[in-house]
Design a protein around this nucleic acid. Sequence first.
DNA 1: TGATTTTGTTCTAGTTTAGTTCTTTTTATG
DNA 2: CATAAAAAGAACTAAACTAGAACAAAATCA
Lengths: 218, 218
Amino acid sequence: MLTEKQYKLLLFINKTTKETGCSPSFEEMKNAIGLKSKSGIHTLINALEEREFIRKLPHKARALEVIRMPKFKPRAILEEEKKRENALQHAAAEIPFYGKIAAGTPIEAIADRTETLSIPYNMVARGQFYALRIEGDSMKDAGILDGDTAVIKKTDNAENGEIVVALVDNTEATLKILQKKGSEVWLVPCNKDYETRKLDAKRVKVQGVLSSIIRNYH
Amino acid sequence: MLTEKQYKLLLFINKTTKETGCSPSFEEMKNAIGLKSKSGIHTLINALEEREFIRKLPHKARALEVIRMPKFKPRAILEEEKKRENALQHAAAEIPFYGKIAAGTPIEAIADRTETLSIPYNMVARGQFYALRIEGDSMKDAGILDGDTAVIKKTDNAENGEIVVALVDNTEATLKILQKKGSEVWLVPCNKDYETRKLDAKRVKVQGVLSSIIRNYH
DNA sequence: TGATTTTGTTCTAGTTTAGTTCTTTTTATG
DNA sequence: CATAAAAAGAACTAAACTAGAACAAAATCA
């Protein structure tokens, strides 16, 4: 009946005309289908017209009309839908996005934010997680850069050498390497321009350990 | 179907005829649509007549008739569809995992591997993607460490300054910053212990640009 | 009826947007 | 490796939109 591209285009035309009342332009269709040239749309449109799924006024702009919709989907579309449904099955886990981590705000204070981040299940394993945006470059040498997203596993105890979210004096949250030294806790940065902070253990609460780093380049 | 202006005008004609029982004048339509001249309305009316949305008596005043209106989807259905799309947004996409990137193997050579990595849809946007494991520390100062997973967008051209997967002499694949200099291509590492490689452009093929970095701590 | 106003039509003209056609390149396939 | 189909790209043509003015037909009303 229809090829995959023809079907996709027909779907798009039908959707936009019913939503907006206007036909899409060749440019818009081109982008929707993922082609880089309008001429491809032209042949698709001709094919759809020949098969009497749409009608059009030649040489007129935005003058398409959907006559009917196919009863069957092309095989390629069916397969894609299956894949997507599959993807929904092991869909990404949604974890709360608590905001930026920087000197200043404890995490609980911003814990009521509703934003979430979706990450793959296999990345979060078991346990409770949340996400933070990294601000500053104090962990630069550990490959953790300003703007990165940190996935944190909620826990209140951590081993020496782990990268943790540490809350100091209930007011200031920071991401550093943890080193317990007797009654002291050292928060070690990964940037020679910053100094290790040596604090009384009572002043420091661990709020989680670093589980993953995600960075997007546009 | 219709262009935006045609549709707006049709809506206005339909509304006022139903409310007042008589069609609007060109002057009224002109003001409603926001034009400064009646002639525009005239052409719009002709277009609507040609597309069989209205009928008119020529040279008669206020003698328009709406024959039909474009069909719409009920709002409830639109909302339902949006929800579904949203859900798919958050679903994980499966992309092929091509193996390690290090001196030696071109990507095609290991392209038949069946392993996949699932990452959130919103991370891959459009286009084709694949994943590579980083080996070595030549990009250390860009926060890309040994063992990281790189999500790569397939493309064969990239801009200066982008981090790309470059295939040299069809034998060696590497992740570096791209700098085109006339007939040369420079592959710039992000580690002062490594040197920039300056190669004849013919020897270098771009196989993708870096889209995301994912790092997991045990 | 004739004068006046309202309304619709036509033309010109410039700018922007959109559709068509043709050639070349890429991709898939036997 | 040849072939055909699909896609990209560029060049071209036409339509859409905007505006202004002049004009003609219809509607209104004294």
